[in-house]
Each structure stands twice: as structure tokens, then as C-alpha cells.
Simulated scan of single mutants.
Amino acid sequence: MKDIPMATKFQDIQPIKKGMSSDEKYFVTAQNGEHFLLRLAEYKEFDRKKAEYELMKKLFHLNIPMPSPIDFGVCNNESSVYTLLSWIDGEEAEIAIPKLSKEKQYELGKESGRILQRIHTLNAPENTEDWETRYFSTMDKRLEAFRREGILFEGNDIILNYIDTNRHMLQKRPQCYHHGDYHLGNLIQSKSGQLFVIDWHTVDFENYGDPWYEFNRIGMEYPYFASGQIDGYFDNHVPEDFWKLLAYYLSASAITSIVWSKYFAPDRLSSILELNQNVLKWFDHMNSTVPTWYTQVK
């Protein structure tokens, strides 16, 4: 830690083991009592980490409730890069939500939807290749991997047919910047009750694309929260096309996760297979695009 330029201002540094990121993460207490999040990555990640930091600065200036970007740079030993962020003191939404009433879950969901909509006001870079091409250049490989070595389940042909026959829906979709991993584990409810977005370090489709693609990690296990997130995003006026694309992105993400889990997270394989079965139930075997868990709270 002595290789970080501002290390002399640190009083205490505690490692954080939670999360799947390859970054080293630390809870830092400064000499003045302030708390920070410190992330370290290998030097070869410099360009990507610098781009992440610059994106966080842009979003912070859009008044997104998120950790403040404090500093970024190269460690003195030049073997790694660091990112220093303010610390958000609170509870992960996935822990906080079960303690709330259904009405409170819905309202918190609406807040998360409004935040996500604000994130999506930041347009993708100019001259970005169209979304349909970008999406399928990645997803076609994943779908082929499933057909070649995935674990088959009852109804997998229904999901694959829905994906194949509705490819046209991705034509001429708008593109914006993404959070990249917008789910309950990356939302913090502060002690004052405000919702904050953390962990801006997932690179999926270079962190920009169809804004509605970001709903593929929506927390369906808490239907009132998930419903509120959709209603908050669209200010209670959900377009029909959204439901069709939600069914598309959720089903494609679920079925292509099987091969990934098989090799990289075998302990999660049973839950991912269950997710695929749930997708079939939610969308009535892909005959209905409004999921069964969607509930409006008046």
C-alpha cells in the first residue's frame, strides 16, 4: 500500500473479499476519519480503468447517486493502477428489501428505475456500430456454444426459437452508456434511506448499447421492486415494445449463462437451469411478453 501516492493519509486499510471482480478492493480509513473504497488492478488494465474512471466522473456530474470519484493513477511501483472512491455507508438492496413492506419495495424499485433512466441519458460514443451487429457478434457465439455443449432442459427449444424468430427487434435500437451490472447487489440503501449505485467496473458490450438491455439483471425474486423499477424508468407508461425486448434479453441471457456456469461457476449451475425454467413460466412458454411477476401498485 505504500506504493499509492496518498498512502501517508491512510490510517487503516482492510481488504474486501466480496465480489467477483479481479480487482483488489480495500476499505480505507483516512487519518481524518473519512472512509474510502480503494481498488487496485494490474497495470495492463490502465486504459480500461482510466476509461471507467472518466465515465464515473461524467455520470457523477449528472447527479447520479453514486460514490464520488476521488483519484486515479499509477502506483509508485508502476505494477498496478489504483482508483479511489468515496465510501457509501449503508446496506445492499438485496439485504434491505426483504425487511420492507411490498409498498416500500415498490417505491424503492421506482427510485432505482428513475436512477437508471438518468444513467441512460449519456449517449454512446459517436460512430458506434449498430446495436444489432454488436449484440449478435457476441451472442451468436454464446448461443452456438449452448447448442454445442450446453445442458439441455425441457423447453430449451422454445427459448431458442423465440430468440431466432425475433432477431429483427434489435434493428435500429438506440444506444447509450450502461452501468453494466445493474442489480440488487450493486444498489446500496444508505442509512438515510437514499439509494446509491456502486460497482461501475463490469464491461459488457463495452458498457454501452440498447438502454433496455440493462434490464436483463432485474431482480425478479422481488416482484414489487422489479415492477417498481420498470414503472419508475418509464414514469408508469411502459411501451409495448419494451415487454417484447425484456422477454428477449432475459431469455437470451438465461440460456447462454448455462455454458458459462458449467465451466466458470458450477456451483451456480442448478440455479441458472432453474432460471431458464422460470423464464418459460414468466412468459407462458414465450406466448406472453408481460411477465407474470409484473404488478402495478397504485
Results as ranks from 00 to 15, higher is better:
I97F: 02
H168G: 12
Y249D: 00
S288E: 00
K50N: 12
I4W: 12
A252D: 06
S137P: 01
S79I: 05
I70T: 08
L160A: 02
Y248K: 06
T138H: 10
H178Q: 06
S79A: 12
N127L: 10
P65A: 11
S21N: 12
D12W: 08
K57H: 14
Q194W: 04
D47C: 01
E54W: 04
Q229Y: 02
D3N: 13
N63P: 07
L40S: 12
G19I: 03
E144S: 14
D210E: 04
Q14D: 05
E206G: 03
H35W: 11
E221V: 04
H120I: 10
G113P: 04
R142L: 11
T256E: 09
V290F: 01
G109M: 07
Y26K: 03
G155M: 05
S80E: 09
Q175P: 06
M66G: 04
R268F: 09
F205M: 02
F136T: 01
L37Y: 05
V238S: 07
T8P: 07
N161T: 08
R48S: 10
Y294G: 02
N127H: 15
A252E: 13
I198S: 09
G113W: 07
H285C: 02
Q189W: 15
G219F: 08
A226R: 12
M1N: 10
D23E: 08
L152K: 14
E92G: 09
R217K: 14
V74R: 11
E126A: 07
T121H: 13
A51Y: 12
Y43C: 03
M169V: 13
T295Q: 12
F234C: 05
H168W: 15
F264G: 00
G193Y: 13
